[in-house]
């Protein structure tokens, strides 16, 4: 079984994702919400690739290989989608602590001021517990923290996404401060945050200090 990625014949096995197949031959596909320890959410759409014959682009993090599939990871259609998503994102939140995203943007020639006349998502910085702060001005809604808090790691369910559309946000039960939620301060959410929206305040007193690499692999 094989697929063709950017003209390269790549041997693959059943069940493998496009992302994994590309990785095998050293092709790095940009990604944001993807994290190897979490269920792929396929929501950032930065990892979209062009699959010949498909009506839309497909997210490489979840799309499974099919024998003979012809994939383009850098076509103009793909680059336009990625570039526009990053331009939209940069006009919405503060990406200054997301170096991977800034590197992708530079490579794609994205104009990060292109939508600067639009509304931003702005919040106070929440400093309501001894362990970490929540600065949602930097939150890209990748939902990794919600997943880590829930079924993917901690089974604590202190976090949710509230609201809808552009004004969705990571939230607690009726915006409760963290100490009033079910949060056990395990630190997993902080560890998986890719943009510095969640930041530890000092050494974690908990015996379960975070062990997961928060950053996506190097581009």
């Amino acid at each position: 079984m094989h697929v063709i990625i950017d003209g390269q014949r790549v041997p693959v096995t059943e069940g493998m994702t496009i992302l994994e197949a590309a990785e095998q031959v050293g092709i790095h596909i940009p990604r944001l919400c993807y994290h190897q320890s979490l269920t792929p959410a396929a929501i950032c759409r930065l990892c979209v690739v062009e699959w010949e014959g498909a009506r839309t682009l497909v997210p490489a993090c979840v799309a499974r290989v099919q024998d003979g599939a012809v994939i383009h990871t850098e076509s103009e259609r793909v680059r336009r989608a990625r570039r526009t998503i990053l331009e939209l994102l940069a006009s919405t939140v503060d990406l200054s602590e997301a170096p991977d995203l800034l590197a992708y943007a530079a490579e794609l020639n994205a104009d990060l001021d292109r939508f600067a006349d639009g509304a931003r998502r702005e919040f106070p910085v929440y400093d309501d517990n001894p362990f970490y702060i929540r600065d949602y001005n930097k939150c890209v809604l990748c939902q990794r923290c919600v997943q880590a808090c829930g079924n993917d790691m901690q089974f604590t369910y202190a976090l949710t996404v509230s609201g809808r559309g552009f004004y969705s946000r990571i939230d607690t039960f009726y915006h409760a401060p963290m100490p009033e939620t079910t949060c056990v301060f395990c630190g997993n959410c902080v560890a998986v945050c890719p943009t510095g929206a969640l930041k530890e305040k000092g050494p974690f007193p908990s015996p379960q200090s975070p062990v997961l690499d928060a950053r996506p692999s190097e581009p």
Binding site: C44, A81, T84, I85, L141, R164, G165, F166
Partner: peptide
């Protein structure tokens, strides 16, 4: 827009 995927969450607002 439900806000789940970025293109629609951000694109519909802009």
């Amino acid at each position: 827009s439900c806000g789940k995927c970025y293109p629609c969450q951000l694109g519909t607002q802009r």
